[in-house]
Design a binder for these strands. Structure first.
Lengths: 113, 113
DNA sequence: ACCAGTACTTTGTGTTACTATATAGTGGTA
DNA sequence: TACCACTATATAGTAACACAAAGTACTGGT
């Protein structure tokens, strides 16, 4: 799927929060997981701007660990504020998602007229 | 639901396209329909920036008609390019929506461990 | 010495929803 | 008359976000 950039606004941050919530992970790995999920055009830079934002907003705990596969990794875990933010994200997503389904159902009803 | 601004990026334009596709309508009415749908914080200015964009991208046909309820109204209908754009929007939405559901299901599986 | 893969970072850009404000027509009412 | 609420369109500026592009740095293989 190409050019879904605008649709990803807001949700990509939620995805990153969700991925971190599953267990300690780092930027490069998060990027790979997003790509594996299907958001195949997501690049490191995008994820790093998000993780930086999470840091600034103090939603994550950070731990730097050495790696045998390259430079040291910055591992993230969600703190309490991070979990709160994630919960709120899913609530917002459910709301928007529901409304969009309503709109689409009206569409189908309309087309049977 | 409050502060879903970022989540609305990209989808609000799709909503406007969908609403116009149901039949000739104008900015003020589109705003009311969006508010009625549940996006209660959407204001006229937001919708007008979207309709202006649709005009510039030549996705709509425009007809100005007098109104007894106030100033003349600018009625919009989708042209072929508009219908194409709308179809593509729903495809993108379906894609993103599916991926988000996948992510959320993994979440639930994870929490039963 | 070179390159691919891993890993993090920064700067700048384009798109979008939103804020605030202005303009204007109609109808009601004090 | 003056004022206000509702209808209706428009625009200039802002903030937030994903993304592009480039750079730095560490490891291992050829």
């Amino acid at each position: 799927m190409e050019n879904i950039t605008e649709l990803l606004k807001g949700i990509l941050e939620g995805c990153v929060l969700e991925i971190i919530s599953r267990g300690e992970t780092y930027g490069y790995e998060i990027t790979q997981q997003l790509r594996q999920l299907g958001f195949s055009d997501v690049v490191e830079g995008t994820v790093y701007t998000i993780t930086m934002r999470l840091e600034k907003q103090q939603l994550v705990h950070i731990e730097k660990k050495a790696s045998t596969m390259g430079p040291p990794r910055k591992f993230y875990t969600l703190n309490e504020a991070g979990h709160d933010r994630l919960r709120i994200f899913w609530e917002k997503w459910a709301f928007v998602s529901d409304k969009m389904q309503e709109l689409q159902q009206l569409k189908q009803e309309g087309s049977t007229r």
